[in-house]
């Protein structure tokens, strides 16, 4: 089976978010970048599927040269080779067009990625790629099992799950508990250094959205503490001050 795993290069989940240049640029200073946590699930499942039935895993990232350590980490976890599209990921459409262009004619059986990136949280790319390639896309995928040419998937919906069957090829946006995150071992780290990482220039420069500036949420006021022996006061505050009940 030939699997393409698309990964994002994003700030660690514990990062403090701030901006520079008049709130137009993300402040990278002191921020550690990681493989998107959802993408990491997709990669982990791809490695398991390869262990079961053989094949190859190509990892794809749309990003500038600074993302290469993140790509190398994906190679250390178990991808065989990598492609980096040498461009800043302008928006979801821009990224989807690059992925579709890599996939066209390459005959991947599966294209896996995270349900969303944890920087922009759009959750749009997998469905856009599906539409561009004329293929089904399923997200958020909690379990993915493949037998022959058919996949069985469970997808999270509001208040429950949907059980789905479909034929390969397709695109899936993954989330837990699809697989356990894999930690690269020493052999993986060593071999990742020499695995092929091809750099390609973008094939399309279409984007339809543009960030004009960033904002941080207003600072929170102090918490109003209520004595546990005076719950009536709490009810009064919720009802008459916050007006939420």
């Amino acid at each position: 089976m030939k699997i393409l795993v698309c990964i994002t290069h994003v700030p660690d989940t514990t990062s403090r978010i701030s901006f520079t240049d008049g709130n137009t640029k993300f402040d990278k200073s002191g921020v550690q970048f990681i493989i998107g946590p959802y993408d990491d699930y997709a990669l982990a499942r791809a490695v398991e599927l390869k262990e079961q039935s053989g094949g190859s895993i190509t990892v794809l990232n749309v990003g500038e040269a600074e993302t290469e350590p993140t790509i190398r980490k994906a190679l250390a976890i178990g991808a065989d080779d990598a492609i980096r599209i040498n461009a800043f990921p302008e928006d979801a459409l821009f990224v989807a067009k690059q992925i579709a262009s890599v996939a066209e004619g390459a005959e991947y059986d599966l294209i896996l990625m995270g349900r969303e990136s944890i920087d922009f949280n759009g959750g749009q790319v997998h469905s856009m790629v599906g539409e561009l390639l004329g293929l089904p896309s399923v997200s958020p995928v909690m379990t993915l099992d493949i037998e022959g040419n058919t996949a069985k998937i469970s997808r999270e919906i509001e208040g429950g799950k949907e059980h789905i069957a479909l034929s390969l090829p397709f695109i899936a946006g993954c989330q837990e508990p699809i697989a356990e995150w894999k930690i690269p071992n020493m052999r993986g780290i060593m071999s990742a250094r020499t695995k092929p990482l091809e750099v390609r220039e973008p094939t399309s420069d279409v984007s339809k959205t543009q960030v004009s500036d960033f904002e941080l949420p207003p600072a929170k006021g102090d918490v109003k503490l209520i004595d546990p022996e005076n719950i009536g006061e709490l009810v009064n505050l919720l009802k008459n001050e916050a007006k939420v009940i």
Partner: peptide, 15 residues
Amino acid sequence: SIYTGKAFANTVLKA
């Protein structure tokens, strides 16, 4: 809302 609610992006729809 971006960065999982830690910030906002004012975004122009260009189409």
